[in-house]
Simulated scan of single mutants.
Amino acid sequence: MSLFGKLEVEVEIKAPAHKFHKVNTTGNSELPNFCPQFIQKVESLEGEWGEEGTVVCWYFHVDGKTVVSKEVLEVVDNVNLSITFKLIGGPLLELYKNVKFIVESTPKGGGGLVRNIFEYEKLRADVLDTNAMLQLAVEVTKEIDAHLI
């Protein structure tokens, strides 16, 4: 059994892809207002919003629990409307050696298509996949889209 995995899901949005990308890169502090049932708070611990190397702490609900996740903004691609966060702290690191969250926004008509990708390496073969995080990404994407249109 492989310890490496990749899960992804696409969500069609009505808002323009560039607006969705902008919220994910420079408007993270607004996300709790967009989807308070999923994200309670987002804090920038080091660096500036939207800049590579920025360290962010997320407080969110998943599987009925409040979880804190510390991540570094590893890649910001404003041309291809993509952003990559690398997990550097939080309870997921008790199960996974490496976790990356990638959000790609692609223009489609007047709206767009958002692809949420989770790449990971498990610490042990018996660790389950991150399906709960994938479902959270779908719900958050829908909430952000509803707020933007």
Rank of each mutant, 00 (worst) to 15 (best):
P36F: 07
P36H: 05
Q37A: 10
Q37L: 07
Q37T: 13
Q37C: 15
F38N: 12
F38L: 14
F38C: 03
I39G: 01
I39R: 05
Q40S: 03
Q40I: 00
Q40C: 00
K41I: 06
K41H: 08
K41S: 15
K41L: 03
K41G: 01
K41D: 13
K41M: 10
K41E: 14
V42C: 03
V42S: 03
V42R: 12
E43D: 12
E43G: 02
S44W: 03
S44T: 14
L45D: 13
L45H: 00
L45K: 10
L45N: 00
L45G: 00
L45A: 06
E46R: 06
E46N: 02
G47R: 03
G47N: 14
G47D: 06
E48R: 06
E48N: 04
W49Q: 12
E52F: 05
G53A: 09
T54W: 02
T54E: 13
T54L: 05
V55F: 05
V55I: 15
V55S: 02
V55W: 01
V55P: 04
V55Q: 03
V56G: 02
V56R: 09
V56F: 01
C57F: 07
C57G: 06
C57K: 15
C57Y: 08
C57I: 09
W58A: 09
W58H: 11
Y59W: 10
Y59C: 13
F60W: 11
F60H: 08
F60Y: 15
F60Q: 10
H61A: 01
H61I: 15
H61M: 09
H61R: 08
V62F: 02
V62E: 04
V62G: 02
D63A: 15
G64D: 11
G64Y: 10
G64L: 07
G64V: 12
K65M: 13
T66N: 14
T66P: 05
T66H: 02
T66K: 15
T66Y: 03
V68Y: 04
V68Q: 12
V68W: 00
V68R: 06
V68L: 04
V68E: 11
S69W: 06
K70N: 10
K70I: 08
K70T: 15
E71K: 11
E71W: 04
E71A: 07
V72T: 10
V72Q: 03
V72W: 00
L73I: 04
L73M: 15
L73F: 11
L73S: 09
E74Q: 10
E74C: 04
E74W: 04
V75D: 12
V75Q: 07
V75L: 08
V76P: 01
V76Y: 07
V76R: 04
V76A: 08
V76H: 01
D77P: 07
